[in-house]
């Protein structure tokens, strides 16, 4: 995925320039209807499906029901995967923030006329298949590979390997969603007038203090957007866990996928999806309350 559009010019859309007429609704209707039918309504069916009960003797067939017990049983079985998903996604997000910040900072303040080229280089890896890139980490982190043997020589790996451990899954997540962190950070940093940092220096702030008191607070919108845009897809991802981890590293996405497609246990899979979405919505709305929707869209 090459998502994330750096928040671009939010210039004045003067209300007086806006026309109110039927044309507006006509322009809006087809696309919004599409989103309503294929994005919003599916959540309703997802919820209804999560409450269905199995039909006796027919595996994979379900009848309309109000089985709230589906949630209890799904959570009883899969709560560790929820915890693991959010822990993995959380660690990956923090690492991504730490390594994305210097690059975003470098492009924003030292990029000069190479800025746009550097930004292209940030998204360029996304042009190669997501699955193949993840698969490539199998080669890079292989047991006989340089990285694993070096770390082993230093006795830094508890299991003696990286592949098929949680470390590999987190590494994959960090790598795959890194551009989602870099771009919003860049967009926020780029808006900062470098003279503000100079002014801080002029006013007796050491570089570290200037960063803590000026740069970091001003880049906060990018930090918030970047962490959300990294955390959300990472928490729902199952490709990294499936390709780089072992059965002990399964994430909630794996459980949803397997229940939906292999086991055809639609109610359980739906219940899990619904809970995942609910948790993420809480996160997003906390953010929206801070920034307002127009700001993110």
């Amino acid at each position: 995925m090459v998502a994330v559009v750096p928040a671009a010019g939010r210039a004045s859309s003067t209300p007086s320039a806006q026309k109110s007429s039927r044309t507006g609704y006509l322009l809006l209707f087809p696309g919004i209807a599409w989103l309503a039918v294929f994005f919003a309504i599916p959540f309703v069916t997802l919820f209804l499906t999560s409450l269905q009960k199995p039909i006796e003797g027919q595996s994979g067939r379900y009848a309309v029901g109000l089985e709230f017990g589906n949630y209890a049983s799904a959570m009883a079985e899969y709560w560790p995967l929820f915890v693991r998903s959010f822990v993995y996604a959380g660690i990956a997000t923090i690492i991504a923030l730490v390594i994305a910040y210097p690059l975003a900072y470098f492009i924003a303040f030292r990029g000069g006329r190479w800025r746009s080229l550097l930004l292209v280089l940030v998204i360029a890896p996304s042009f190669a298949s997501f699955l193949l890139r993840t698969y490539a980490w199998k080669t890079i982190l292989a047991d006989e590979g340089i990285i694993t043997s070096t770390l082993n020589a230093l006795h830094l790996l508890p299991d003696g390997r990286i592949l098929n451990t949680g470390i590999a899954v987190v590494a994959g997540l960090t790598y795959n969603f890194l551009p989602f962190m870099i771009l919003p950070l860049y967009a926020a940093l780029e808006k900062i007038d470098p003279r503000l940092i100079e002014a801080a220096g002029d006013l007796y702030a050491s570089p570290a203090t200037a960063f803590r008191k000026v740069t970091w607070p001003l880049s906060m919108p990018g930090v918030v957007a970047g962490t959300l845009l990294t955390f959300i897809p990472a928490a729902g991802d199952y490709i990294n866990a499936a390709l780089l981890g072992s059965t002990g590293n399964r994430m909630i996405g794996n459980a949803i996928q397997i229940n939906f497609i292999q086991f055809r246990d639609y109610p359980t899979a739906s219940a899990l999806s619904f809970v995942l979405m609910a948790i993420i919505l809480v996160l997003v709305f906390t953010y929206i309350r801070r920034a307002g929707t127009e700001d993110l869209v």
Partner: peptide
Amino acid sequence: FLPMATPEVVMGASLLAL
């Protein structure tokens, strides 16, 4: 905004449910 903030697995699953 929401489709961009929804994990793909949830979008895929809910659409399949539909």
